[in-house]
C-alpha cells in the first residue's frame, strides 16, 4: 500500500440553512456533514455506512462537487504534468477540489465520477444507451464520433452487455434494473476516472442480479485501478465491497476501521447497536441485541457535546454531555473511534 493517499478529506462541513420564509434571516442550520476527515489510498475502497439522514450521500456529493462545502478541504492527488495541462495549481502534488471553479472544475471531473442509486431515474429516458454512456466523452470533448462509438462498444462489453450493438441504440426503459445499473457503471468509467463515488448502486437491485453487479464493480476496479467511495446502508454489502468502513451518525464519522476489524470488534456504542440490528440469513444464529432508545433526528443546530449522547446506552452524565463531541482517534492498528469511553 502506498503512503500517499489518492483522496484526503480534512474537516469537511456542509450546513444547509433551514428556510423560515422569504425575507427572514436564517439562524438555523442542518449540520448535514460536520467536520468529517478521512483519506483513501489508490485502489482502495472505503465504505461510508449509516442510517438515512446521517450525511453519507451529502459527503459523496461534496466530493464530486455537486455541492459546495461550507468549510473544509478535499485534496485529490494529481500528476504534475496533468495539472499543468488542465491549468490547476498543485500543493504538494494535490489539488484542492473544494475551491475549484469553471474550466478547472470541468477538467477535474475527468478523474472523478459517480454511480447513482436509482437505475430508473439516473438516465434520461429520451436518450439512447449510446448517448448516455458517451455523455461524459461528449461534454469533455474527447474523441471523434467514431472513436466514441468504438469506446462505448468497448465499455458495454466490459460491463457484460454483449453484444454491444444490440444494446447501444435501445432506450433505458427497454432494459432491466440490473442491465441499467451496468450501463450506469459504463457511463461512469468511460473516461477512465481514478476515483468513483458509488451511492447505493445495488440497493434497488434484486438479490440474484445484485451479486453480479457487485462482482463487476470489483473486477473493473482491479482492472482499471479505481478507488471507490462506496456509500451504503447495508453493512453486509459493504463487507464485500470495501477494504475499510467508516460509520456515520448525524453528520459525524463515529468509527472507522478495516472492514473485518470493524464488523468483528466494533468499539463505538452506535456501531455495536447498528451491527446487532442487522438481520442474519441464518436461522440457527441467535445474536445478542443492543437496544438503543429513540430514532435518528435531524441535526438542526446540534449541541456541541457528543451527538450520540441522547441515545447512547453507556453514556456517562457529566462527561459525555459536558465535553465537546469526541475527536476521531486511532485506538490502535488504524481503528479510529470517536467516543470518550473507549
Amino acid at each position: 500500500m502506498s503512503f500517499q493517499p489518492l483522496v484526503k478529506v480534512e474537516g469537511l462541513k456542509k450546513y444547509f440553512p433551514v428556510s423560515k420564509g422569504l425575507f427572514r434571516k436564517t439562524h438555523d442550520y442542518i449540520h448535514a456533514v460536520d467536520d468529517v476527515s478521512f483519506s483513501i489510498q489508490p485502489r482502495e475502497s472505503l465504505g461510508l455506512v449509516g442510517e438515512s439522514g446521517c450525511g453519507k450521500t451529502t459527503t459523496g456529493k461534496l466530493l464530486v462537487r455537486l455541492l459546495t462545502p461550507t468549510a473544509g478541504r478535499i485534496f485529490f492527488r494529481m500528476e504534475e504534468e496533468e495539472a499543468r495541462e488542465e491549468g490547476v495549481r498543485l500543493e504538494d502534488g494535490y489539488v484542492d477540489v473544494a475551491t475549484l471553479k469553471g474550466r478547472a472544475l470541468k477538467n477535474f471531473r475527468r478523474h472523478v465520477q459517480m454511480i447513482f442509486q436509482d437505475p430508473y431515474e439516473s438516465m434520461n429516458p429520451r436518450l439512447t444507451i449510446y448517448d448516455i454512456v458517451a455523455e461524459p466523452m461528449a461534454v469533455q470533448g474527447i474523441g471523434s464520433v467514431m472513436e466514441r462509438e468504438q469506446r462505448v462498444a468497448e465499455m458495454l462489453q466490459h460491463v457484460g452487455l454483449t453484444p454491444p450493438e444490440s444494446f447501444m441504440f435501445r432506450y433505458p426503459h427497454e432494459l432491466s434494473g440490473g442491465q441499467r445499473q451496468r450501463v450506469a457503471i459504463a457511463r461512469a468509467l468511460i473516461i477512465n476516472p481514478t476515483f468513483v463515488i458509488a451511492d447505493e448502486p445495488t440497493s434497488m437491485l434484486d438479490v440474484s442480479v445484485r451479486t453480479g453487479v457487485m462482482q463487476l464493480m470489483q473486477d473493473l476496479a482491479d482492472r482499471f485501478g479505481i478507488s471507490y467511495l462506496y456509500i451504503t446502508h447495508d453493512l453486509a454489502v459493504a463487507r464485500y465491497m470495501c477494504d475499510k468502513i467508516a460509520v456515520m451518525y448525524l453528520g459525524k464519522i463515529v468509527e472507522m476501521a478495516e472492514t473485518e476489524e470493524l464488523l468483528h470488534h466494533p468499539l463505538h456504542p452506535y456501531t455495536k447497536a447498528l451491527l446487532s440490528a442487522v438481520p442474519i440469513p441464518d436461522p440457527t444464529y441467535k445474536r445478542e441485541v443492543i437496544e438503543i432508545r429513540g430514532s435518528v433526528s435531524t441535526p438542526i443546530n446540534p449541541p456541541s457535546y457528543c451527538r450520540f449522547y441522547n441515545r447512547c446506552p453507556v453514556a456517562k452524565e457529566g462527561l459525555c454531555n459536558v465535553q465537546e463531541h469526541p475527536p476521531l482517534e486511532d485506538k490502535g492498528g488504524g481503528h479510529y473511534v470517536a467516543c470518550h469511553l473507549v
Binding site: 456529493k61 464530486v64 455537486l66 470541468k106 477538467n107 471531473r109 475527468r110 472523478v112 465520477q113 459517480m114 447513482f116 442509486q117 436509482d118 431515474e121 439516473s122 438516465m123 434520461n124 429516458p125 429520451r126 436518450l127 455523455e135 461524459p136 461534454v139 469533455q140 450506469a184 457511463r187 473516461i191
Partner: peptide, 26 residues
C-alpha cells in the same frame, strides 16, 4: 431534481448542455 441531471453535471456538463440535452427533449 432527477439524478440524470446530477450525472450530467458530474460528467462535466455545463448549464447549456443540461438545458439542451436533458431539459428540452423531455
Amino acid at each position: 431534481v432527477k439524478p440524470y441531471i446530477e450525472a450530467a453535471r458530474v460528467a462535466g456538463g455545463g448549464d447549456w448542455h443540461i438545458i439542451v440535452v436533458h431539459f428540452i427533449p423531455n
